[in-house]
Amino acid sequence: MKQLADKPFVLLGVNSDEDREALKQTMVDEQITWRSWWDEGNVEGPIHTTWQIQERPAIHILDANGVIRYKNLPPEEVDAAIGRLLAELEKR
């Protein structure tokens, strides 16, 4: 992730933990700097419901126009997918 720091890229989370205070502490302790939506402490929270999330972790990748380009991507394919979308963006 470090080599993406100066690229037009952002990692955003949607978190479903029940215990918000514990989660805050974990994020501070483990220096998790990327932001996450709070989904009301629930895998049936409004964001999970709208997105029909069945399995977690679920990774989706959107391009710079907000278009969904990859859904439920296996972790080992994430780097290549992000690389392709960044290359596409640089070409424009």
Partner: peptide, 26 residues
């Protein structure tokens, strides 16, 4: 909505960037 720390957060504010959206939790 809001982020874990209570600050407002909106997906469309990140237009122009490639976004990796990760649904996660313990």
């Amino acid at each position: 909505g809001e982020d874990v720390f209570g600050k407002p957060m909106k997906l469309s504010d990140y237009r122009g960037k490639v976004v990796m959206l990760c649904f996660w939790g313990h």
